[in-house]
């Protein structure tokens, strides 16, 4: 063995440490902590045909992270434009994704009325303070306690508003991808209106989403 090879062999543990870490735990870097909250899941929510899409949807059903839904849509659109894909499976994938929105979107959500990022202390004279005043600067103990409670409520309000906003926006984006992908399936893979109508008619997606996909076939 040459000196060069011997030196490399001796240095191997040092050189390889970061590679080993990356090889053994490639997911650890990119993962975000899953949300602990869970939502009830309908028994009729459809499964995706493509295992890659199904895996991402299972991830979404477990964590409810918007990224997982977007990842599922990425996987569903991966073979757009390729003549060898399965048109029936593609439509099934999009139906499975859009069914999650139908299940999880809050129909009462009003994106035009966002909450304030800070509030004033509650009570008749709470308005003497600026919104976001530090609780320690609120002299009245009762007002201070009520203010701390109100801050926490507003934090949850902001969080829910943010989550709903992201879900609505993801729906718009993914619906656009779905329509393009279905149009491609029609043109490239010969997906017929009759087949699509049959699948869509029984799908648990919203009427507007169903119509959007149908119009993509025209």
């Amino acid at each position: 063995m040459s000196k060069r090879a011997l030196a490399l062999l001796m240095l191997a543990p040092v050189l390889l440490a970061p590679f080993l870490l990356a090889l053994t735990a490639p997911q650890a870097i990119a993962q975000t902590p899953p949300r602990t909250e869970t939502r009830p899941m309908s028994q009729t929510i459809p499964m995706a045909a493509d295992p890659a899409v199904a895996e991402k949807l299972a991830d979404y059903d477990r964590t409810h992270t918007i990224e997982a839904l977007k990842d599922a849509a990425d996987a569903a659109a991966l073979h757009d434009g390729e003549p060898t894909a399965d048109a029936h499976a593609r439509l099934a994938n999009w139906i499975a994704i859009l069914a999650r929105f139908s299940r999880d979107l809050d129909s009462d959500f009003d994106p035009d009325h966002p909450p304030s990022m800070t509030i004033i202390p509650p009570g008749k004279f709470g308005s003497q303070y600026s919104p976001g005043v530090n609780p320690k600067d609120v002299k009245d103990p009762e007002m201070r306690a009520a203010y701390i409670e109100a801050i926490e409520k507003n934090r949850i309000l902001l969080q829910n508003f943010g989550t709903n906003t992201k879900l609505h926006e993801a729906h718009e984006v993914i619906l656009e991808h779905a329509a393009n992908s279905i149009a491609d399936a029609h043109q490239t893979l010969g997906l017929t209106n009759a087949t699509a109508d049959t699948m869509l008619a029984t799908s648990p997606i919203s009427a507007s989403d169903r119509e959007r996909l149908r119009s993509a076939l025209k």
């Binding site: 966002p114 909450p115 304030s116 990022m117 800070t118 509030i119 004033i120 308005s127 003497q128 303070y129 600026s130 919104p131 005043v133 902001l158 508003f161 943010g162 906003t165």
Partner: peptide, 9 residues
């Protein structure tokens, strides 16, 4: 996703 409430007090 939020508004600012600017208020003098």
């Amino acid at each position: 996703v939020a508004q600012d409430h600017c208020w003098s007090g």
